[in-house]
Design a protein around this nucleic acid. Sequence first.
DNA 1: TCATTTAATGTAATTGATTACATTTCTATA
DNA 2: TATAGAAATGTAATCAATTACATTAAATGA
Lengths: 331, 331
Amino acid sequence: MSTIQDVAKAAGVSVATVSRVINNSRSVSAETRELVLETIKKLNYQPNLLGRNLRRAETRLILILLPSISNPFYAKLVKGAEDVAHKNGYNVMLCNTDSDINRERMYLEHLKNRLADGLIFMSPEIDKDELTSISKRFPVVQCSEYKEGADVPRIRIDNMAAAYKAVKHLIGIGHRRIGLISAKNEYVSTKQRELGYRKALEDSGIDFDSALVKYGNYGFRSGLRAGNQLLSIDNRPTAIFAISDSMAIGAIRAAKERGLKVPADIAVVGFDDISFASMCEPPLTTISQPKYDLGCAAMEMLLAQIQGKPFETDEIVLEHELIIRQSTIDC
Amino acid sequence: MSTIQDVAKAAGVSVATVSRVINNSRSVSAETRELVLETIKKLNYQPNLLGRNLRRAETRLILILLPSISNPFYAKLVKGAEDVAHKNGYNVMLCNTDSDINRERMYLEHLKNRLADGLIFMSPEIDKDELTSISKRFPVVQCSEYKEGADVPRIRIDNMAAAYKAVKHLIGIGHRRIGLISAKNEYVSTKQRELGYRKALEDSGIDFDSALVKYGNYGFRSGLRAGNQLLSIDNRPTAIFAISDSMAIGAIRAAKERGLKVPADIAVVGFDDISFASMCEPPLTTISQPKYDLGCAAMEMLLAQIQGKPFETDEIVLEHELIIRQSTIDC
DNA sequence: TCATTTAATGTAATTGATTACATTTCTATA
DNA sequence: TATAGAAATGTAATCAATTACATTAAATGA
């Protein structure tokens, strides 16, 4: 494997000149440049960026920590972040944490060890204090999911308002008994969505009934199970709001298996607008997050941090949207 | 940001000693080790791995190039590869190429620039010669999808045999007019699956009919479209084999929209066994690839290359499995 | 007790680049 | 033609670690 020294020797110039050619800095004569470029090609020389990065103290690499790549929700977030990064000459790599705090810490080491310039958390597992302390020393942002109380910039939607809007939609079309499929976890989004559900009921004078709340783990199967639970109680709900699309689709399946018609017998609303939401049967009414824009904004905020620009705000809230499809209104 | 020099000075020892403590090499007295560790903690010191990696000429990082993280097929492949890597003290990062040859090249630069020790292609875009030339100089393997003629180790299933088995299954339950939903691309898997389809027909004395072959792009919508095309021809097929589950699910939707019953009126077989295959209605008969094992095998082969072990074979073929569900046989 | 081995630590070279500073060569102007 | 200024190039320090080799101190054995 040839080094810059080899190239310099072979071309009969100094390493500084070779470096200048590689980096296109001025003050290299056309002939010399030509000669060096030829030598580089001849020797099949590839600069070792460990050397450059060490010297320059930057890597132009950004890490994105994902709880799981199989969750379709993240694809567009990542795309937005990548597009902004590339436009600014940065590369992006994805780290699959599996929601495992140890794997998360492993990847954080790359940041701490100066192997990456910044990091975006899609769903942090470490606690708010650890998060804050990392953020003090390295450029990081939280995107979409976040830890409450952590002093770390974040981009998010208003989950409470979104859930409120979803449930109000159900109330608006005449439903009074509305089931909730939530999740038992510590995510802020979960709590906020539950709050939005309760507030919508309250504002419409509907009493909260804990029998109408079931829990899943965001996946299809857990939604199927929760849906079955909700549909088997006396005085069953006429509508269900699930905090994830996959669980909503599971609930629809539960309804169909019991011979119930969606939306005639039971209306269903999901959350996230994953691509399958428009493909399932019936297509799912859901809350759409501006996924691409969330990703863009997160990367912009991170790059600003890296480039030392003072940022005015450490929280950006983007708009969500209620997408009404046939799972709530038959047309 | 403190360096090893700072720690050495603060602890009153040499940098060599600090390095020895960090790397747990022998010959450091218990007291000195204690003192150094305390100093490290006090200064909040984090080693800069750029220095270490430069000196050691290794990064312990493996790159996996994916055409798209939204494709559910890759999740388990990645998991297998990651598990093997971690067991061997390597980290894994994912690179989203979006099937864009330029983005693929961008990430390949990381390998060439010594920022990673090895790389796994899940679906290479660059041509066989470029691939071969990279493989001569750096550790790489191809997993699942691959380029024919490239001299690069690969792990795969026998796509032709798998397609053959799928179509033979349809023939076995009485079908003679069997549609194919394929894709117009250069992937070996595509060609092999088409070959398997043709061979199954031939072996059963069924003539190939090009009117029964339609094309999509692996996605749900394209399957819906192709399904509609197949179902609208005179003398429509009574069964469809699609080379991806998402297209098969689209075809099922097309059938349902026309009031056809699956499998009574039309049987459908997919390929890949994505998680949604068992959730859709009816659950999909499909070919299951040993995704986790493919990922494991790929990483093992790559690590062997990195560690300079001579490998006996540059092709490993793992077993597939036909999973029969209600989209072909009602039970 | 003295020589020899072993353990603990230090000094300085090394890794592969970039870059501040120095030097040489060329142009253009007085 | 002499000279200032610019352009082209080179020398060597630097980045933050690891590690070969050297040195010192302690332990062991005769």
